[in-house]
Simulated scan of single mutants.
Amino acid sequence: MKNILTRRRTHRVLPTMLLLAVTAGTLTACGGAAPTPANSASSASAAPTSSTSAAPTSSASEPSADSTLHMINNEGRRLAFHVTPGHLPAIVLDAGGGLDSSYWKDLVPKLAAATGSEIITYDRAGLGDSDEVPGPWDVKSAASDLETGLRELGVTRNAVLVSHSQAGEVATYLTGANPRLVSGAVLVDASLPEFYTDSEIARVVAANKPQVDAAKADPSTKENRQLIATAESYVPMHQAYHQVSWPDSVPVTVMVSEKTPFDGSPEDAQLWRDAAAMFAKAGPGRTLVTAEGSSHNIPIDRPDLVLSEIEKMAATRG
């Protein structure tokens, strides 16, 4: 595995924003990663403190007119969860870095109609209607936020998790710590552990150093803060992520785009595809699906394919 991912490469200049690309797609498509407190990471089983719910709302990040906004508190962070009613098991949609729940606005009503399932979307910390919290991005803290929200909403087992891009990291930690909470998953051009060899991490960081330095010179925008937050924890977080495994008890469909986040770098795009293929072969119950002709934003470019794969997983695991 490592021989494939660490093979000798030329030293071409990579496309800009690859620090975000490997977690969130291009800057224009997906933006940065959500900042969360550096020292507030907790185990994914952390208990929620309190929650409130409201009637249907016209929140800017709301993905569906039929959804209800629930503001849930986890370790001082107020997080926005949007629930479209239906039967259990719930289908949970998690967008890539820099994106809030509105990313799924076109898919949610179609998915609800096709499956009759409860559909849950949410805004990670710093995005949409959720609180912005300073500090390096922490994937375990993000996983704790998602688990707390689901449990507060009554989802304690058998959820079908749909995770795009950077959300693949959240899904991997959440599912590894709580395999009974997730009955199956669809990982949509997701950030996967196999991609993050030391050489690839170093390559991505070096390619993005000028832009990170520029963001630090003027950190006043949310996009700059998100880029800085991602950069501050990027190396140790992804070194650790490279060692994480998906539990064999949870089936997963691995969708990979044809163009990947590295459309301008064929070599790195192939490494991304190789990582998806290796992940799919690494355990039982894993299926690899290629979204032909799609950019990294498969839910936008190939929504029917994403809908079909979610329906299959929900029908099997329901």
Rank of each mutant, 00 (worst) to 15 (best):
K105H: 11
H70T: 11
S220L: 02
A95M: 03
E147K: 07
L99A: 04
D189Y: 04
D66K: 02
A142D: 11
I72S: 00
T316D: 06
K259Y: 05
L146E: 03
S233V: 04
G76Y: 00
P15V: 14
N297L: 05
A280D: 09
A171F: 14
E118T: 15
T49S: 00
E62F: 06
G283R: 11
E152L: 04
E75H: 06
I300H: 12
V170A: 10
N297K: 01
I310N: 06
G32S: 10
A167Q: 07
W246Q: 09
P85I: 12
G176E: 00
Q211L: 08
W137S: 04
L69H: 07
L99R: 02
T230N: 01
A80G: 13
S40Q: 04
T28R: 04
A65T: 07
T115F: 01
P136F: 07
S294P: 06
D145C: 06
L14I: 06
R124K: 11
S117A: 15
P63H: 06
D218H: 04
V155S: 07
R203W: 11
I91Q: 07
V186E: 00
R317Y: 15
G285D: 09
N178S: 01
G32Y: 03
Y122L: 10
L307V: 12
T10C: 12
W104Y: 01
A24N: 09
H70S: 15
T52G: 05
S144V: 09
A29C: 13
R302F: 15
K281T: 13
G283M: 11
V252H: 08
W272P: 15
M1L: 10
E223I: 10
R302N: 09
A114L: 12
L93A: 15
N208S: 13
V204G: 08
G32C: 13
D129Y: 02
G31D: 10
I91P: 05
I298M: 07
G98E: 03
D218W: 01
D131L: 08
S249Y: 03
M17T: 12
T84D: 10
E232L: 11
L20C: 14
G86N: 14
S61N: 07
S144F: 12
V250F: 04
D100K: 05
K105E: 13
P284F: 13
T10H: 10
L153F: 05
G31W: 13
S265W: 07
D94W: 10
R124F: 01
R302G: 12
M1A: 15
V204A: 05
T10A: 12
P219G: 12
S233F: 01
T316M: 14
V170K: 06
A21W: 08
R273P: 03
D213H: 01
P261V: 12
T28V: 10
A114E: 03
D274Q: 03
P136T: 04
D268L: 10
A90W: 09
V92M: 06
T287Y: 02
A206L: 08
S141L: 15
G264Q: 00
D218P: 07
K140F: 01
R157P: 00
L111P: 04
A34F: 05
T260Y: 05
R77W: 00
P48F: 13
A55M: 06
R180I: 11
G116K: 11
P37D: 02
A125M: 08
A90M: 10
R225H: 02
A280P: 13
H164L: 01
N74S: 14
